[in-house]
Design a protein around this nucleic acid. Structure first.
Lengths: 187, 187
DNA sequence: CCTACCGATCGGTAGG
DNA sequence: CCTACCGATCGGTAGG
């Protein structure tokens, strides 16, 4: 069972996804939830509170995934595979919140810098693993910057692809995506 | 020399990029342009007019590129290379407007369906070329849907990468990106 | 959780 | 290109 707060947030992020954060009003959300606008404030602090908690929750999932994976007894290449798998899972299980990540983070207020920092950390560690996989001879010599950017762009947009291809089996998707993103750069 | 209208639009899309379309007010734009808000309306019809003309202009560039390239006497693989090159050029020469494409098209009003249609056409033709390159034996057997999605995701986000790597030589970038996106799937 | 409401701000127009 | 302004709507609060 979801708390009322969780219900409100779930509905709100669905609307943020469709219309954008700024264009979605508290009145819109209230109507969809089925209460008066003023009543929302018994469950959430502000409109910003909804965006902030949604985006930071996703950021924390990515951070946790990275922390888990880097601590594993695996090769860098296997860690990259695992990270891709984690991103697929996070995306599918939080599709609406994840869809806000590329575009709506600009509307974060006090937590904006924290969010950016978290994203930069993730990218830096991803880049490090890619370099390590090259050094170990598992990936061929490549432009680390550009390859990181390319892989993360695909994963960042996965939500939109998955929304149009919900039928895909999860294991197939993981395998297809890993192959697509990593196979081509294997040594 | 830019017309006043072009100057206003250039400033406006820069602000749309930074704060988003909805959160940018006509007063914000007027201040930056250096006139009173009401005066803007001597050059543009409405706030929506700015967004619409910017996004449709970019959409037309993509459409034109696709039309040009498909008419060339080249293999499907070479056409894909050319399309990637065109996208790089369009991105670099219109970096602010291009940055609006992934996120701000949702705020289009009357022209939204036209915009979506244009994007779908482009994707369909890209997919077709990818399939043709596979059939001709220039690319290995691959998931056409997923590969199209992956390549176009990277290109769609190129503006953000380029903004942080403005020093890159254009030819180098084209070569690096083509290699990154196509080399891995070559037969 | 609702009624009632507030100050601020929005896109845009009239008229010169 | 500006002054003056309008109706609509916003996020949020007071008080019960």
């Amino acid at each position: 069972m979801l708390t009322k707060r969780e219900q409100i947030i779930a509905i709100a992020i669905k609307m943020f996804r469709k219309r954008g954060y700024v264009a979605t009003t508290m009145r819109d959300i209230a109507r969809e939830v089925g209460m008066e606008p003023a009543s929302l404030y018994n469950h959430i602090k502000s409109k910003q509170d909804i965006l902030e908690s949604s985006l930071l929750e996703i950021a924390d999932m990515y951070t946790l995934s990275m922390k888990n994976v880097t601590g594993m007894d695996k090769t860098a290449y296997e860690k990259l595979e695992q990270l891709i798998g984690d991103q697929i899972n996070i995306t599918i299980q939080n599709i609406d919140a994840v869809s806000l990540v590329p575009s709506e983070w600009i509307h974060l207020e006090v937590s904006k810098s924290k969010f950016i920092e978290s994203r930069n950390d993730y990218e830096a560690q991803f880049k490090f693993l890619l370099q390590e996989a090259v050094n170990k001879g598992h990936l061929r010599e490549l432009d680390i910057e550009l390859t990181t950017f390319s892989i993360l762009s695909t994963l960042r947009y996965l939500f939109s692809w998955y929304s149009r291809n919900k039928d895909k089996n999860l294991d197939d998707l993981h395998q297809a995506l890993t192959k697509n993103l990593l196979e081509g750069i294997k040594k």
